[in-house]
Design a binder for these strands. Structure first.
Lengths: 207, 207
DNA sequence: TCCTGTGAACAACTTCACAGCG
DNA sequence: CGCTGTGAAGTTGTTCACAGGA
């Protein structure tokens, strides 16, 4: 079962994790494909297919052990150990991220970066703010694995390249980056405008 | 030609728009499927297929008129006129959105909402902050069509239902909403944790 | 019995390849 | 000739339906 995994499957894995976090609160120990399916509004066979890409976690006639399943999914997503993250841009979005309980999801922001003098050397929510000029050095020293880019668009490419030079193996950006990057690494976007536009389309379609 | 449109096509339409905004700066008037394809790192035939779902915009042997194409895509996405938006939650994410040039994309935040007394009645970036208790009334009065939810998770369902009761036809949420909603409307999420998790998976896969 | 895991059928999406028009 | 628009082929993703184990 070691075929290529659909990206959609990976996204659903994150939803399964949200479901597990939710169900764990109730004290349950076993869960069935149907439970995950209902939570995510998809079919139960799709849940089983998704999980089967990675092995056989379940018990026939019973279901899945919640704690085992959680461990497995975290392993698959690479968040079985905490990943160290550097954050560029301490504006509103940056601050929101610093206040966000990312650690619970397996990520820890270990350093923040900005170019505004009044911020450099301050700690925000326990995270030190460095100057963007020191980004390569700090990324290397602290061995940061991922970068989050929350700077204005015109600064995004430069910041991305610095992160990569500092050793970042993947980037999440709120700003469109005019590629090409110095080195090809996984790059994802959070596109607020795009989401609003798609929502707008869906609204029009309804009518 | 009026088949079901893939969601992926709609998302790419938003990318085409970003490309058009970018190319317009250069003063060009004509663009070809290959230009859009290169910008978006996809194949040119996919660009043509995407556009062909909605009619024949191009000129054979020449390409697409940039201004016509922009008009068409905006029409398809329902942003040929500005859509009025209400924003719940004036924390860091909410403030980031208030500072974001959404108007350029066809959206205008006409009212913000929070429950913190010190914010109510203030204007932030020209947008009045109301109490969440007045959300239904304000949504109706101002005829807000869309809602953005940037409140803590435990408040999200309540806020969503109020927006819908106030007449919102679609919602964009930063917090997971435990459905069901009072009434089914298009609902999209921006899931920062999920994006980080997927990125983490992609990083592991590379290795 | 009940629920998982999975071949096989089906559906959705993308690419190919070229007809057809400017 | 060059580029669009589109059937047809190819590929990828989802659902069906059931064998098989607990």
């Amino acid at each position: 079962m070691r075929k290529r995994i659909p990206e959609a499957t990976i996204r659903r894995l994150t939803h399964y994790l949200r479901c597990i976090e939710f169900i764990k609160e109730t004290g349950a120990e076993i869960l069935q494909s149907r439970d995950l399916a209902t939570f995510c509004s998809i079919s139960d066979s799709l849940v089983r297919r998704d999980l089967s890409y990675f092995g056989e976690f379940g018990t026939k006639g019973v279901g899945y052990s919640i704690s085992e399943l959680e461990k497995h999914i975290k392993k698959i997503l690479g968040i079985d150990r905490t990943k160290k993250v550097g954050l560029a841009g301490v504006g509103n979005i940056g601050r929101a991220l610093l206040n966000f309980p990312l650690l619970k999801n397996g990520f820890s922001i270990e350093a923040a970066f900005d170019i505004r003098d009044e911020l450099i050397g301050k700690k925000i929510n326990g995270v030190m703010v460095y100057h963007e000029n020191d980004m390569i050095k700090v990324f290397k020293e602290k061995q940061l694995e991922m970068g989050i880019i929350a700077v204005p668009q015109q600064a995004a490419l430069d910041v991305a390249n610095k992160m990569i030079e500092g050793g970042a193996k993947g980037l999440l950006s709120f700003a469109l980056i005019q590629c090409p990057l110095k080195k090809k690494v996984p790059l994802r976007y959070i596109e607020i405008a795009a989401e609003l536009e798609i929502l707008s389309y869906e609204i029009e379609k309804e009518e």
